[in-house]
Amino acid sequence: MEKLKLIKKLLEDKKAEDVVVLDVSNLTNIADFFVIATANSTIHAKALADYLVDEMEKAGYTVDHVEGTEFGNWILVDLLDVIVHIFTPEWREHYGIEWIWAEARRVEA
């Protein structure tokens, strides 16, 4: 939970909106949690991802890889047991990741 709380705080500190944490541990083996956040633009999304990666590494967490920074509409930050999805509003609505993972329990971090 400490890791999730830090991720949520870092995103919210940099003005990410509608940050949601989903427990997907019983639904997939790719991660235990998804964190979903909205950025107000592709530039904001890239800045959020860069800040998150830097701060998580400073805190001693492993960042496995980052995808999507070339366009910035949907950036994925893989922290091994937690995958962070940073969307622009249009892409978050279009892909409906919360709907796809509707069986996942929401977690208050």
Rank of each mutant, 00 (worst) to 15 (best):
M56A: 00
D13Q: 12
K46F: 03
R106L: 02
W99V: 05
V21T: 14
T42S: 13
F33W: 12
D23C: 07
N73M: 04
I100A: 02
W99A: 06
D81H: 06
K58Q: 14
V21Q: 03
D81E: 15
L79H: 05
D54W: 03
E67R: 06
Y51W: 08
E108G: 03
D50M: 04
T88P: 12
H94I: 10
V107E: 09
I75S: 08
D32Q: 10
E55R: 14
L6E: 13
R105E: 13
E17G: 09
D81T: 09
A47N: 12
T38D: 06
V19M: 13
D18I: 02
R105T: 11
N73P: 01
E103D: 15
S41F: 12
M56G: 00
D54T: 10
A45K: 04
I43W: 06
A16E: 10
L76K: 05
E55F: 01
H85C: 02
S41Y: 08
V20F: 03
I75C: 08
I97G: 00
D18W: 03
A104P: 04
L27E: 05
R106H: 10
L6Q: 14
W101S: 00
H85E: 02
Y51M: 12
E90A: 15
E103K: 10
V53G: 00
W74F: 14
R106G: 01
L52Y: 04
W91Q: 14
G60N: 14
H85G: 03
V66N: 06
E70G: 12
T62H: 11
W74Q: 13
A109D: 12
K5M: 12
G68P: 09
V66C: 08
L11S: 10
I97L: 15
A16S: 14
H94N: 06
D81L: 02
Y95A: 03
G96F: 01
V24I: 15
L80N: 11
A49Q: 04
I43G: 09
E12R: 08
R106C: 00
G72Y: 11
D54K: 15
